[in-house]
């Protein structure tokens, strides 16, 4: 079992991704959860770089960290914890845990050769395999071309724009209600440090 630099980097980013994700699910404080979400998504961006998809890595950081998570934080700030709930999780969380664990084991068992590896003689998983074929140097240009090529992804591309438009209009319709504005800036604060948010 040879450990290369790439394998170490892979392990580090995987740990960031999974550790951040665990914190998202477990943390009491919603603001912290959002920050951990950023960390986790940053780890995913690192994995994308390792997979030779730098454009997707950049897009991941710009869209997820720079936009979606910021939006989530804005939303968190708009809905302060009126009900100071001490419980973060449902009471039936063991069931969910069992379900998730079962799914994980099932996925790993069916999708990976890990089971065979373990069955043979202990842990002998190899961290390096032969490189798959190289990514063409102009793959990014090809991406741009394929997006506007009527024979390839033009239709999904325009549909994506349509989806964004519909989402934006719908969201503005939902959020922008000038008739009732309960979220005045001076609304009563919801008690002490909001660490008990669900």
């Amino acid at each position: 079992m040879e450990i290369t630099v790439e394998a170490i980097v892979f392990l580090v980013f995987s740990a960031i991704t999974l550790g951040g994700a665990l914190q998202v699910v477990l943390t009491r404080n919603l603001f912290h959860a959002a920050l951990y979400l950023m960390l986790s998504l940053f780890g995913v961006a690192g994995l994308f770089v390792l997979l030779t998809a730098p454009f997707l890595a950049g897009a991941q950081v710009v869209i997820y960290i720079g936009a979606i998570t910021i939006l989530i934080i804005f939303a968190i700030m708009l809905t302060p914890q009126v009900t100071r709930v001490l419980k973060v999780h449902h009471t039936q969380w063991p069931v969910a845990l069992a379900l998730a664990a079962l799914l994980f084991v099932g996925l790993v068992w069916t999708q990976t050769p890990l089971a065979d590896e373990l069955g043979a003689d202990g842990w002998s998983a190899d961290f390096t395999v032969e490189d798959p074929a190289d990514v063409p140097a102009d793959s990014l240009t090809d991406l741009g071309k394929s997006l506007v090529d009527p024979e390839r992804y033009m239709l999904p591309f325009e549909a994506a724009s349509l989806l964004l438009m519909a989402a934006l209009i719908g969201a503005v319709l939902l959020v922008n209600r000038p008739d009732d504005n309960p979220d005045a800036e001076a609304a009563p604060a919801a008690g002490a440090r909001p660490d008990q948010s669900g």
């Binding site: 939006l71 700030m77 708009l78 302060p80 969201a171 959020v175 005045a184 800036e185 919801a190």
Partner: peptide, 18 residues
């Protein structure tokens, strides 16, 4: 009171468009 004051939905609309 706490520092966690409620914000106006105004900020949120700009984030949406963004």
């Amino acid at each position: 009171g706490s520092a966690w004051v409620q914000f106006r939905a105004q900020y949120y609309v700009f984030a949406l468009v963004f």
